[in-house]
Computed example of a mutant assay.
Amino acid sequence: MDAKEISLSEKAVKPVVDLLNEYLANYHIHYQKLRGCHWNIKGQNFFTLHIKFEELYTNAQLTIDEIAERVLTLGKPPHSRFADYIKESAIKEINTIGMNDLAMVDALLEDMAQLIQLERDIMEASETAGDDGTNDMVNKFMQFKEKTTWMLRSFAGKK
């Protein structure tokens, strides 16, 4: 399959595919960070955050699959090696062992801010390419992250 089969210009969607692969890389690092937070949370907020982190990594896992499948829909292969994810991701790995609960929340908020910016970049590129499918998909992901950001900021007592 290629972009022409869904009435899109392959040249027009190349920047979209490149951004989606970058997005995929960032999401994989974010996903693993969420899992590390889930596994290593301690303290008074354990029950609340343990459940929330699991909810978030489950959502991230589904999102990753949708991103990869969208790249395939656009006729290109998605990145699938951790070496590529680490190399391309602006989001960096962290060691969650011994990290306190609010530091974990702060690290995840930073990730979400980076992902939201990347989502805005993808939506701009997909609009230019006439790729409404990617635009709709990414907008849905962004809305989830915006709401989650508000909730985590409220939990942490931030403005």
Rank of each mutant, 00 (worst) to 15 (best):
G75A: 02
V105Y: 04
D84S: 12
V105L: 08
V13K: 04
F53P: 04
Q143S: 13
N100T: 10
G43I: 11
L72I: 13
N100Y: 13
E119P: 06
S7Q: 07
I6F: 03
K159D: 13
Y23P: 05
M142L: 11
L108A: 11
D132S: 02
D101V: 01
G133F: 01
W39Q: 01
L74A: 02
I64K: 06
K158D: 11
I64R: 09
D2L: 15
S80Y: 13
D18F: 04
W39S: 06
Y27Q: 12
P78H: 06
M142D: 08
F53Q: 04
G36N: 05
M151A: 10
N21Y: 08
M123P: 10
P15E: 02
S154Y: 12
T128S: 09
W150F: 13
E22F: 04
N100V: 12
T134E: 01
H30P: 15
E54W: 08
L20P: 02
Q114N: 15
E66C: 10
Q32N: 09
T73W: 01
T128L: 04
D111W: 05
L8D: 05
E55P: 11
V17I: 11
A90L: 13
P78W: 01
Q61N: 14
R81D: 12
D65Q: 04
A125K: 12
A129N: 00
T149K: 14
Q32R: 07
L152D: 00
K11V: 01
F53W: 15
N59P: 13
L49G: 04
A156Q: 08
A68H: 03
L74F: 07
L74G: 00
M112T: 12
K159R: 13
H50I: 01
L24H: 14
R35T: 12
L34W: 05
I41H: 02
A125C: 14
E146T: 06
K87D: 14
E124W: 09
M112R: 09
C37V: 15
A90W: 11
L20F: 01
E55D: 06
M137L: 08
W150M: 05
K76Y: 10
L19P: 01
N21R: 09
L108R: 07
E5S: 14
K11C: 06
K147D: 11
T73K: 06
I6R: 03
N26M: 15
G130T: 00
C37A: 14
D121P: 06
Y57F: 06
E66D: 15
K14N: 08
L19Y: 02
M1N: 10
Q32G: 09
M137H: 06
M142N: 10
G43V: 10
L20C: 02
T58M: 14
N45C: 09
D132I: 03
K42L: 12
Q143L: 13
F155E: 07
A12T: 00
F144N: 13
A68C: 04
C37D: 05
W39H: 07
